[in-house]
Amino acid sequence: MEPKEIIEWNNKKREELTEHNQKIYEEMLIYIRAGSNKSEQQTEEVLLELLEHLLDAQKEGKSAEEIFGSDFKAYCDDIIKEIPGEKKKKKLGFGIYIALKYLAIISGVTGVLGFALSNFFEIGSGEFTFTPLSGTLIIALYLALLFLFIKIALKWIQMTSFSKKKKWIEFVQLWLFCSLYFGLFYLIPKLIPSIGPKISVPVIGLGVLGVVIYIITIPIGRKYGYTN
């Protein structure tokens, strides 16, 4: 069975858990999924097994603590440790897919917004000026920032799992973290000096490019099961 079919089934089946067990199981699920870099197939299979075990045990009046012990985090770490890694090819493909989609959105939004602003509000020149060398460097830094952000976000999800910390503290942390991200996003192009000849294109071209890349990623995502 494909991971996405297992996930759909898991989503449905999870509703049969008691409130107490569901709360614990869902935290375990998030924690184990965030322990990324692992085979998605094996991850989803074992998550479904744990769910079905819990459902069976629940019928006999047992609680999650009796099945997984009192230290859920330690139990999940034992599980994550034994899940095999994802195949290199699939990992690389997924990385490229995310990168393309991200660039498509940035370029699409910049293009459409720039076009609208200059045409309807006469803000901006309606042209997008860049230097190929600096442009490439900025894209590379954007991608590095994105992957760093994803890595840290996953780690953060794991660190805040099973914790009894107040929700508002987590919210402030997340807010600061996102602000830092957008701050860097804004600063990178300002800090990179323009090197070499400049090229100007109509800003709508950027929008079209974004849309085209986005459309290209859709069948790739379907084929490799990155999207539902």
Partner: peptide
Amino acid sequence: SEGSIYPILLRLQKEKLVVGTLK
């Protein structure tokens, strides 16, 4: 504890001593 079999089953699968099939 009942849950302790799952890390072991994962390891046995990784070492190819057992195969698990989900149909």
